[in-house]
Design a protein around this nucleic acid. Structure first.
Lengths: 260, 260
DNA sequence: CTTGACCCTGACGCTGCGTCAACCCTGCAT
DNA sequence: ATGCAGGGTTGACGCAGCGTCAGGGTCAAG
C-alpha cells in the first residue's frame, strides 16, 4: 500500500497534482487508514500513469476522463481533435515568435520598415527627439488605421524630405520645441512655410488626402489631437493656420465656410 | 474624444480588455465626462496599440509595462528572454504532438512498441481480454519503473511464448477467469505448470530478476497487488504456490525461511 | 521527547480576459 | 413625453492546472 507521496513519486507527479485529480474526479478517492491518510493500491498507480500520459500529450484534463473510457474509434477521433488544437497553438506561438523577432529596436516596434526608414531620415535632417516621438506616435495611428495604404504613401512622404523647405520646416519645429519659450517668433516662419507648402500642394491637385473617405474623419481628428496634446505650441500654430485659411495638421485642407 | 468602445474598436480589442489594462495599470485611467464615461484622447490610442503589439507578440502583460519604458538595451534583453520562453513553449507543444501521434491505438497508449507486440502475441494465443487487461496494466507499471530495461527484457519474454507450456498456462488462466467459478479445478493444473516453469528457470540460473535491486521491492509488491486486485483466484493461486515453496507473481522466487 | 518528514483540509494566486448582473446615460423614433 | 436600443458604469465569478501558504495532525527515528 502506498501513501500519496509514494504514489506521486512513482508516477512522477506532485502530491498536489494527485489531490487535484481527486478533486476533479479523474482519480477515485481511495480508502483511508486509521489516521485519515489515503492509501493506494496498484490500480491507482496504473490509472495515474495513464492520466499523466494523456496529459503530457497535451490532452486537457477535462477530456482525459472521457478518453480513458472511450472505445478505439472515439479515442482516435479525440486524438485527431487534440492534435489539431496543438497544431493551432504551435502556429500561434510561432507567429508570436516572428513578431518578437521584429521587436529588436524600439522604432520598429509597431511600424513597418518603410515608416521606420522615414523616421530615420527625419532624424538625419536634424529633427529633435521630441518631434520624432510625436511623428512616431502619429505613424502608429496611421499604420493601425491604414496598414496597407501606408506602404503606398511612404515614397511620396520620403520624397517630400528632398524639398529644402520641408527640411527647414522640421528644423524650425525642432528648434521651437527644444527652445521651449512661450511666444517663439519662429512660429510665424513655420506658418508661412506650411501655408506655402499647402498652397503648392493645392495647385498641384494633391491635398494629401489619398484614398481616405469620410469614415476616416475620426482618425484625422485623433492625429490632430495627438499633436495638440504633445505640445501647446502646436495649438498656437493651428490657430494661426486657420487665420490663413487652412485647417488640420495631418490632412491640411481649406477651412470650411462657417455656416451662417 | 473617444468613448471606451470607440477606443477599443480603433485598436481592435474588446472593451473588457481595455478595462483590464486599466486595472493592472498598463493604461492610465483617463478623464471622465459629466456622466462618468471615460473619455480618451489620441495618446491613449497609441499606448493601447503599443500594448497590443507586444501582447500579440507573446509578451506577458506583466512585462509589457516595463518593456514600454525600457531603454533599447534592456528592451533587447527582454525580447531575448521572451523569445527563449516562446521557443521552450513551442518545443513542449511539439513534444506533445509527437506523443499524441503515438496515441492512435489504446494499447500503445502508455507502452513501447515491443511490449505492444508482446501483448498482441498473447492475444493471438487465445488469452482472454481480462487477462490481457491485467497484463497491460502490469506492463504499464513496469514500463514506468524501468523504461529502458523493459526493452531489453522483451525478447526473452517473447521467446517464452514459444514454450507450449507457457501458452497452455495463459490459456488455462483465461479459461479460469472467463468461467468465473469459485473453486475451479484447473487452478491445480496452473499451479503445477508454474512450479514446473519456476524450477526449470531456477535450474537454468535465470530467476526472472534481471538487474533489479532491492529498491524495486515496492514495485514488485505493486505488481503482485495488481494481480490480486484483478481477480480473487489470483490470491488463491499465490497461496497454493507458497505451499509449494514459491512466492510472487512477477518475480517468482523461493519463499524465504520464516524467521523463527 | 523531540525533530523532521509526511499527511490532512481549506483557501488564495496566477493569466487574460469572457460573461453575467444590475444599473445609468444618450440619442433617435414615436 | 415616452419608449427603446445600444451605449456606458462597477462588481464579481469563471476558466486550467496546479503552486503555495496556513494551520493543523501523524509517523519513524534518535
Amino acid at each position: 500500500m502506498l501513501t500519496i507521496g509514494q504514489l506521486a513519486a512513482y508516477a512522477g507527479v506532485t502530491v498536489r497534482a494527485v489531490r487535484h485529480y481527486h478533486q476533479i474526479g479523474l482519480l477515485p478517492e481511495p480508502e483511508r487508514d486509521t489516521s485519515g491518510y489515503r492509501k493506494y493500491g496498484a490500480p491507482a498507480v496504473v490509472q495515474l500513469i495513464k492520466i499523466r500520459t494523456l496529459a503530457d500529450a497535451g490532452v486537457p484534463l477535462a477530456q482525459v476522463g472521457r478518453m480513458l473510457e472511450a472505445d478505439p474509434a472515439t479515442f482516435a477521433e479525440a486524438v485527431e481533435r487534440i492534435d489539431a488544437q496543438l497544431r493551432d497553438e504551435i502556429d500561434r506561438l510561432a507567429a508570436s515568435r516572428r513578431q518578437v523577432a521584429r521587436l529588436t529596436a524600439g522604432d520598429s516596434l509597431v511600424l513597418p520598415p518603410p515608416v521606420v526608414a522615414y523616421l530615420d531620415r527625419l532624424r538625419e535632417i536634424g529633427t529633435s527627439d521630441r518631434i520624432l516621438a510625436g511623428e512616431r506616435d502619429g505613424w502608429i495611428l496611421i499604420a493601425a488605421r491604414w496598414p496597407d495604404q501606408v506602404l503606398e504613401w511612404m515614397p511620396d512622404k520620403m520624397a517630400q524630405l528632398d524639398d529644402p523647405r520641408v527640411v527647414r520646416l522640421y528644423q524650425l519645429l525642432s528648434e521651437i520645441v527644444d527652445a521651449d519659450v512661450v511666444d517663439d517668433p519662429r512660429v510665424t516662419e513655420v506658418v508661412d512655410l506650411m501655408v506655402e507648402l499647402a498652397e503648392q500642394a493645392e495647385a498641384a491637385g494633391v491635398i494629401d488626402v489619398h484614398e481616405t473617405g469620410q469614415d476616416d474623419d475620426i482618425s484625422f481628428a485623433l492625429l490632430d489631437d495627438l499633436a495638440d496634446a504633445a505640445d501647446k505650441r502646436a495649438e498656437r500654430i493651428r490657430e494661426l493656420m486657420r487665420e490663413r485659411g487652412w485647417d488640420g495638421w495631418t490632412r491640411t485642407q481649406r477651412v470650411k465656410e462657417p455656416p451662417g
